[in-house]
Amino acid sequence: MKAREKRRVKTKTLWELFAGMLYISAFTFGGGFVIVTFMKTKFVDEKHWIDEQEMLDLTALAQSCPGAIAVNAAILVGWRVGGWLGMAAAVLGTIIPPMVILSAISFFYAAFASNPYVAMVLRGMQAGVAAVILDVVCSLGVKVFKGRSWLDIAILAAAFVATFFFKINVVYIILASALIGIGRVLWMKRKEAAK
């Protein structure tokens, strides 16, 4: 009897995880951090499944791992609340809305983009998206330069030259900067040990 009741609670939790993420993911525009904010409202403030400090830690973790922040956060919250099944439920809820929307769009895209009016709208929007991306780049770049770390500025400059002018594969650039990062950690540890 008790086991059955427990299972029912569990199924309900899984369903709430799935439906919650489905809803959040379908209506959240504007990237990873926005979705994490909505997740906090739903799972911390409303359901009390996770406490606030832990949610902050999970956010930091989601941000430090490779991949999309929204998917990473769903993995962490799902796993924390409902184990492996919870992880699956939360991830499915997160990826189904963009998959359905983009499938529909790509289905119509070919016919859509060859329409001359739509092409003009898209062309104008391309100018907008270039501005949005370069605006983000400026904000991020200013932060790097304000940090006044010569190593950071050198990495930024070298990575830019390598990708923009020499067309070096992006993967190698990321691996190289990770290696520099590991080197710096080891060097700092040695310096601390020498003190």
């Binding site: 770049g141 790097v144 990495i155 930024l156 990575a159 650039i173 990321i174 900067s177």
Partner: peptide, 8 residues
């Protein structure tokens, strides 16, 4: 900083 450069 490398990611900023790549996005740029």
């Amino acid at each position: 900083p490398a990611v900023v450069a790549l996005i740029a």
